[in-house]
Design a binder for these strands. Structure first.
Lengths: 144, 144
DNA sequence: TCGCACTGCTTGCAATTGCAAACTCAGTGG
DNA sequence: CCACTGAGTTTGCAATTGCAAGCAGTGCGA
């Protein structure tokens, strides 16, 4: 698996550029990269760094993420909810903690889906806590 | 603000790694990169490519996007919603589930504070986010 | 027929990435 | 004491990035 997506990445860039009706040199200037290099990138001969990719995205006025996804540099993960997005975006958490929170949240969702017809307060069987890790969590069970 | 975020990127990676309680070599193996290179990246001596960044993110089990934002490779166009706010606003959760998530989240935060042990920072304001850069996000001024 | 401007592509080359091997320092145990 | 293990770091080196300079092809006006 050397560089399969690089080709499609270059094609994508070229396509975007042509749709914008600008020349290779023009885009290179707008993106602040050299035109030969952009040419090579568009033909899949070179694998641009993320920095260059970012500049190209700016020159094309498109989302850098779209390019990264095309380049296979990030997975195209769309957050299912604001909670998941927030958890994923929280840099103060460790990866493990993040996964724990996500697991718990999703298990909650699943539970509630099973009880859709029921009033939401009926989810009392949480005491089983099948997901809680022994990561040293001390959930202060204060009844609030 | 123009200064390379590479330094903070390395610090961020190292912080995440230490919070995950794994050694440099361990993370290097999980990420599929060499340990010397990871060491240099963590100390800001090298600027890793997006591919390496992606592998490191996988090894750390964190979002590649968080790393890219840290590296200044993409703008943080996500609203960076607060986890607590998102949990509180989630109508699909029961009140008890909400409280469980909040408790766990807060205990995680407390754990990490104890681990990192950064005295110069006022550890009282948990709401603050010392890691993510507050940037002026260009609010989509595309041909309005 | 030139000259000029424009398109994209090919060619060396400096700078950088990323790695293998080897190094230093702490801790453990015979 | 010495060997062993595991932590992170330093040191060359192959491979790659990205660029400056230059090449080929097209269209237009004199």
């Amino acid at each position: 698996m050397e560089l399969p997506k690089v080709a499609s990445l270059g094609e994508y860039i070229r396509q975007q550029r042509q749709q914008a009706k600008i020349s290779l040199r023009q885009l290179a200037a707008q993106a602040g990269v050299s035109n030969p290099y952009l040419s090579q990138v568009e033909r899949g001969l070179r694998k641009p760094s993320a920095e260059i990719l970012n500049q190209i995205a700016k020159g094309l006025q498109i989302s850098a993420q779209a390019l990264y996804v095309q380049a296979g540099l990030i997975e195209d993960r769309e957050p299912h909810s604001d909670v998941l997005a927030a958890v994923r975006a929280d840099v103060t958490l460790t990866g493990r903690q993040r996964q724990v929170l996500i697991d718990i949240y999703e298990s909650f969702r699943k539970e509630n889906q099973a009880d859709t017809a029921q009033p939401p307060q009926s989810a009392e069987h949480l005491g089983d806590d099948p997901v809680l890790p022994r990561d040293g969590i001390a959930p202060n069970s204060r009844e609030g």
